[in-house]
Simulated scan of single mutants.
Amino acid sequence: MPTADVLRKKSKQRRLIIQGTLVVLTVLAIWGAVSNAQYNLTRLNMTSGFSFLDRGTGWDYSFSLIERSINDTYAHTLLIGLLNTLFVGFICIITTTIFGFIIGTMRDARHPAVNLAATVYVQIFRNIPLILQAIFLYAILIHMGGPRQAMSLGDVAFLSGRGVMLPGLNISPTAAVVLLLVSFALVIGLIVAKVALWRGLAIWFVGTLVLTLAAGHVLRPAGEALFTIPSLQGLRFQGGISVPIELFALIVSITLYGTAYIAEIVRGGLSQVPRGLVEAGQALGLSRASIWSRIKVPMALRSIIPPLGNQWIFMMKATTIGIAIGFSDLFYITVNSISQSGQTLELILLLMLTFLAINYSIAIFTNWLNARLQLKEH
């Protein structure tokens, strides 16, 4: 009879053989795919590599946060697509998180009407495919008519088939993006400092407002107003912030869809808070708002953050549906670049590596945030 040491040695050898075989097969498969791709490219008289990134594109697209022209290189155009994807992704992460907490709290409420309304919302938007919601919303918006038929909200904001016009600071889109990044950095700083929820929100709001006003005062064009309000001049609006209809439809559809999922995550986290803690807060005379902000939410966050991070990653990946409605995100730019340049493998590789880096960064941030919120053992 073989001894235990002999059996362990044989088992280890088998594992090594299996692992070695898998490695060899993987290398052979990759080598075969690369060789086949090189052969096909040579047969079609197509060059491989990334030198095409320095060539001009010669085509235009709908939206950009920075200066653009049809003479931009592929590298610059792909950068614009990346910025557009990050812009939409982070806006949707913020909006879905805020509305998700609101709807999730309503789902946890005892009032039957409030609970029912939140449940109906979740069941509707969670069970309809996201791309279908985006296309349906876009089809409605583009048939709303021109600027003269625009819907008005207090004569300061307008919605038409061409887009949304909003009042805003008289600064460039690039400066506005920088302000958003600074505001996000302020949130991270408050989390690191472990500032209480309501105090942190107040500090963030006041800090962002002060920074925005200061930046607007410094960066506005000389002799022009700090804020601009859109107004109808002839056949189009002048002033304010113009949001293309594709961008608006994409943000709204992702927000509606993602909010339903985050609401369920929040509801599940709130329901896990021990009933005894809530009763203790009631015994101390705390209001419902204080119990929610000082007891339920801090306790629930420890179970909410991990699945919430998964949803944040999904929000970023969901931006790729913009191609269905003509929004120039990174996926849209990449597909157009493939059709124009023929560099399929290189562009798909860049697209995959970019999303891998973005989503891995979100995962790292989520893990860090989860570790900061965990109770420390003494």
Results as ranks from 00 to 15, higher is better:
Leu7Ser: 10
Leu7Glu: 14
Leu7Ala: 08
Lys9Tyr: 06
Lys12Gly: 08
Arg14Tyr: 06
Leu16Gly: 14
Gln19Ile: 15
Leu28Gly: 08
Leu28Tyr: 06
Asn36Ala: 13
Ala37Asn: 13
Met46Trp: 05
Met46Arg: 14
Gly49Cys: 09
Leu53Asn: 02
Gly56Thr: 15
Phe63Asn: 00
Arg68Lys: 13
Ile70Gly: 10
Asn71Ile: 03
Asp72Lys: 06
Tyr74Gln: 02
Thr77Met: 04
Thr77Gly: 02
Thr85Phe: 06
Val88Ala: 12
Val88Asn: 05
Gly89Ala: 14
Phe90Trp: 11
Cys92Val: 15
Thr97Arg: 01
Ala109Gly: 01
Val114Tyr: 02
Asn115Trp: 03
Leu116Ser: 10
Ile124Thr: 14
Arg126Ser: 10
Asn127Met: 03
Leu141Asp: 03
Met144Phe: 12
Phe158Val: 01
Val164Ile: 07
Leu166Thr: 07
Asn170Asp: 11
Ile171Tyr: 07
Thr174Ser: 15
Ala176Tyr: 09
Val178Trp: 11
Leu180Lys: 02
Leu181Glu: 08
Gly189Val: 01
Leu190Ala: 01
Lys194Thr: 00
Trp198Ala: 13
Gly207Thr: 11
Leu209Arg: 02
Thr212His: 03
Arg220Cys: 01
Arg220Trp: 00
Pro221Asp: 13
Glu224Ile: 02
Ala225His: 11
Thr228Glu: 09
Leu232Met: 11
Gly234Ile: 02
Gly234Arg: 04
Gly234Met: 07
Arg236Asp: 15
Arg236Pro: 00
Gly239Ser: 00
Ile241Ala: 04
Glu246Arg: 05
Leu247Thr: 10
Thr255Pro: 08
Thr255Leu: 08
Thr259Asn: 03
Ile265Cys: 02
Val266His: 00
Leu270Trp: 00
Ser271Asn: 06
Pro274Asp: 04
Ala280Asp: 01
Ala283Gly: 09
Leu286Met: 15
Ala289Gly: 15
Ile291Tyr: 06
Ser293Cys: 09
Pro298Gln: 11
Met299Tyr: 09
Ser303Arg: 12
Asn310Arg: 06
Trp312Pro: 00
Ile313Cys: 04
Met316Asp: 09
Ala318Gly: 10
Thr319Lys: 09
Gly326Pro: 01
Ser328His: 07
Ile333Gly: 03
Ser337His: 07
Gln340Val: 13
Gly342Pro: 02
Leu353Val: 05
Phe355Gly: 02
Leu356Ser: 05
Ala357Leu: 12
Ile358Val: 14
Asn359Met: 10
Ser361Gln: 03
Ile362Asn: 05
Phe365Met: 15
Phe365Cys: 13
Thr366Met: 07
Ala371Glu: 13
Gln374Glu: 13
